[in-house]
Simulated assay, not measured.
Amino acid sequence: MALTTVWFVLIAVLWAGYFLLEGFDFGVGMLLGHLGRDDRERRLLINTIGPVWDGNEVWLIVAGGATFAAFPEWYATLFSGFYLPLLIILVALILRGLAFEYRGKVDSPRWRRRWDAAIIGGSLVPAVLWGVAFGNIVRGVRLDAHHEYAGTFFDLLNPYALLGGLTTLTLFLLHGAVFLALKTDGEMRERAGKLAARLSVPAIVVAAAFLLWTQLTHHDAWGWALSAAAAVALVAGAVAARARREGWAFLATGITLVLAVAALFVTLFPDVMPSTLPGGASLTVTNAASTPYTLKVMTWVAVFFTPLVLLYQGWTYWVFRKRLRIEHIPVGHP
């Protein structure tokens, strides 16, 4: 297998890992105001992801770095053409990170409410815009013969991409609700479980519509297979959520996200950014790649460091595996 294909697959794995792990982070953040009825309950929700949210964001950093090193032409075109939405995502992630750190620094309800709003907004905006971005990448954008983006910001807000944003939004909400039902106990576990059961219906409808639209447009056999598998996993997750089998439900929603990302990347290959302009030039794994020597060095680095990162992150989740109850949260300001 060519190293360009290897790195295309590795980048797909990184994005799948990011959606799997950061997906429930975003879901918890978006549900903060809905499930957290008072400050103590909101602190409980934040504590479920407190030890892991920043580690989960490492997957995004590595995915961006790997794209820059392995496919610099793709990186340059993507970040110049999608500059505004990616900047909005970055600002949202920064505000969200600040909110986690600063909401408890001042003993003031108004102060905490403002930072809670930053957590909700900082989770909602990326949850939508990542779907919009990937929808445009798979659909294709207006690239000229020099691989430069010739469209506008509003060209990115097409129906297919917006449906992609709605898909990631509903899947992340479901994934987050299932995670909260798995991670908490008592009344919060019950409320999160009921919410997950309700969210499963719109998630199935929206995700099925997006994946069906994708495959009807591209007619990729492997894409059809992966999309069908993702649909089966999502339905299984909904059934498990309604049966209050939180562990199986979380596994199923996680598999759904991984398979959905895999379906998009398989459908995209061998392009990395198709052009929709007549006379335009699409970016592929060949014309967007770095030199063979660069890819070879990167491969050895990945072979050595990736297992270490996975072991460390797995150990983190194992250490903080126990359920949380409202009784674990001290009354008053932390």
Score class of each variant (00 low, 15 high):
2 A>N: 13
3 L>S: 11
8 F>A: 07
9 V>F: 08
13 V>L: 15
13 V>T: 13
17 G>D: 01
22 E>F: 13
23 G>C: 08
25 D>K: 05
28 V>Y: 00
30 M>W: 00
34 H>G: 05
35 L>A: 03
35 L>H: 06
36 G>E: 00
41 E>H: 06
46 I>W: 00
47 N>I: 06
53 W>A: 02
53 W>G: 00
55 G>L: 07
61 I>P: 01
65 G>K: 15
68 F>H: 05
70 A>Y: 00
71 F>T: 03
74 W>A: 12
77 T>K: 02
80 S>G: 12
81 G>N: 09
82 F>E: 01
84 L>E: 04
85 P>T: 09
87 L>F: 10
88 I>C: 07
89 I>G: 02
90 L>H: 07
94 I>N: 12
98 L>W: 12
100 F>N: 10
103 R>C: 08
106 V>Q: 07
107 D>T: 09
112 R>K: 14
116 D>Q: 07
117 A>H: 11
119 I>H: 03
120 I>Y: 14
122 G>E: 03
123 S>N: 04
129 L>Y: 02
135 G>T: 04
142 R>G: 10
146 H>D: 15
147 H>F: 10
147 H>Q: 11
148 E>W: 01
152 T>L: 04
155 D>C: 11
157 L>G: 03
157 L>V: 14
160 Y>I: 02
162 L>A: 07
164 G>R: 01
179 F>W: 15
180 L>M: 13
181 A>W: 00
181 A>E: 13
182 L>V: 07
183 K>T: 09
190 E>V: 15
190 E>N: 06
194 K>S: 14
195 L>F: 06
197 A>G: 09
200 S>Q: 05
201 V>Y: 14
202 P>D: 05
204 I>K: 04
211 L>G: 03
211 L>W: 03
214 T>R: 02
215 Q>Y: 04
218 H>R: 10
219 H>M: 09
220 D>P: 11
222 W>K: 05
228 A>Y: 08
230 A>S: 14
231 A>I: 10
231 A>Q: 04
234 L>F: 04
236 A>W: 05
244 R>L: 08
245 R>I: 05
247 G>C: 15
248 W>V: 07
250 F>N: 03
250 F>A: 13
251 L>K: 04
252 A>W: 00
254 G>P: 01
254 G>F: 04
256 T>I: 09
258 V>K: 02
258 V>S: 14
262 A>E: 09
266 V>A: 15
267 T>V: 12
268 L>P: 00
268 L>C: 05
271 D>R: 11
273 M>G: 04
274 P>R: 12
275 S>N: 00
275 S>I: 01
277 L>R: 13
278 P>R: 13
280 G>P: 02
281 A>I: 07
285 V>E: 01
287 N>K: 05
288 A>R: 01
291 T>P: 02
296 K>H: 09
297 V>N: 10
302 A>S: 12
303 V>H: 07
303 V>N: 03
304 F>H: 07
304 F>L: 15
305 F>K: 08
305 F>N: 06
305 F>W: 11
307 P>H: 12
309 V>N: 10
315 W>F: 11
315 W>K: 11
321 R>T: 09
322 K>T: 09
322 K>H: 12
323 R>G: 01
328 H>V: 09
329 I>T: 11
329 I>P: 04
333 H>M: 08
